[in-house]
């Protein structure tokens, strides 16, 4: 598969020199994202009053906690070289089901695990179809997207308010560090998810198998790795993360609505790509995804501060960033060959 035809290197350079060289190349996309993030933050601080407030930065987390969770799940899928188009729809379905059940008087302690289980099972189902029936991930998750969005519309076409005490408590709870400086519980949950996901990817057999599949699935199979099981598992993880993202979104919005999270799959994919994860799989870090989400959030913040710029600039800037990073990835992988 990957017949790497690098020029023969008869006298290998010293380990240290080589290490420096590959470290640079591998981390270029993440470093660029980091630099952009810092640069953009600096521009914000320099240009807008109050931008330097700590809370401005924390709000980026508060407003994007759900995206962070969804993108973490997407990272697993993309690292194997797959794609999950269903995430936005699963987020919406989760908010609708949660709101409906809560409205019907179900206790939060039942609803919460139930909706998480639902998303997980949806992911499991898509993973199974992809693995056992060799259906393209693109098509299988597209069907999942139609299914989830359709189900939520079927359940209720209108926005359902959530008045459950646990939900409202979660929505209003603020973890304060100092007066006027706080984060929401969702941020804590999202950070825990990110840490767990990063740990799993770096320190468990499952995580390393995810990378191996993205690198070369045929080789992974020949090396005796559980390719099928892992592939199903990443879609299951993504399904779980989507439903958890949905729960966080319902905390944030205090409503369930079938039109929530429209196009969120694109945001998640964009964040992952901008974070330096190769779309062909096998390379990238969860840390990069976090930076990607923050970058998207910061763009929105700046546009809000600017006032005269309108929300569509977000899309254009994201498009430009996507283009830049994809070309960058192309250059990096080409040189690596």
């Amino acid at each position: 598969m990957t017949a790497v035809t690098s020029p023969p290197r008869t006298a290998p350079p010293t380990s240290a020199a080589r290490r420096r060289r590959w470290a640079d190349r591998r981390h270029v996309p993440v470093l660029v994202t980091l630099a952009l993030l810092v640069g953009m933050y600096g521009t914000g601080v320099a240009n807008y009053e109050n931008f330097s407030d700590t809370q401005v930065l924390l709000n980026v987390f508060v407003d994007n906690a759900f995206l962070l969770v969804v993108a973490a799940g997407m990272t697993f899928v993309i690292l194997t070289g797959g794609i999950d188009l269903s995430v936005g729809a699963v987020v919406a379905l989760t908010t609708v089901v949660a709101a409906t059940l809560l409205h019907a008087g179900w206790p939060a302690a039942v609803v919460l695990p139930l909706v998480l289980l639902m998303g997980t099972l949806l992911g499991l189902g898509m993973g199974a179809v992809i693995h056992y029936f060799k259906v393209e991930p693109f098509i299988a998750t597209l069907a999942g997207m139609f299914l989830a969005r359709g189900l939520s519309l079927l359940i209720n076409r209108n926005s359902i308010p959530i008045t459950d005490p646990f939900w409202t408590a979660m929505a209003q709870k603020r973890i304060r560090f100092a007066p006027g400086i706080f984060i929401s519980t969702s941020v804590v949950i999202a950070l825990v998810v990110v840490l767990v996901a990063a740990y799993v990817l770096a320190y468990t057999r499952f995580g390393r198998t995810v990378y191996a599949i993205g690198g070369n699935a045929d080789s992974a199979l020949l090396m005796g790795l559980p390719v099928g099981r892992t592939r199903i598992a990443v879609y299951t993880v993504s399904g779980f993360c989507s439903s958890l993202g949905g729960v966080l979104l319902s905390f944030y919005m205090l409503s369930g609505y079938s039109l929530h999270a429209q196009g969120m799959e694109l945001d998640a994919i964009a964040a992952v790509v901008i974070g330096g994860v190769l779309l062909t799989g096998g390379s990238g870090y969860l840390f990069g995804t976090v930076l990607g989400v923050l970058l998207l959030g910061l763009i929105q913040t700046i546009i809000t501060f600017q006032g005269t710029l309108s929300s569509w600039w977000t899309k254009i800037v994201i498009g430009i960033l996507l283009f830049g990073f994809i070309v960058l990835q192309r250059l990096v992988t080409r040189r690596a060959r």
Binding site: M1, R205, R208, T209, A212, N216, S219, A220, G282
Partner: peptide
């Protein structure tokens, strides 16, 4: 055609699946 994953480290390629 070497059946390894070139994106992983040398050590991992030797030990993956039995780390």
């Amino acid at each position: 055609e070497v059946n390894l994953c070139t994106n992983l480290s040398v050590a991992e390629n030797i030990f993956i699946g039995r780390e």
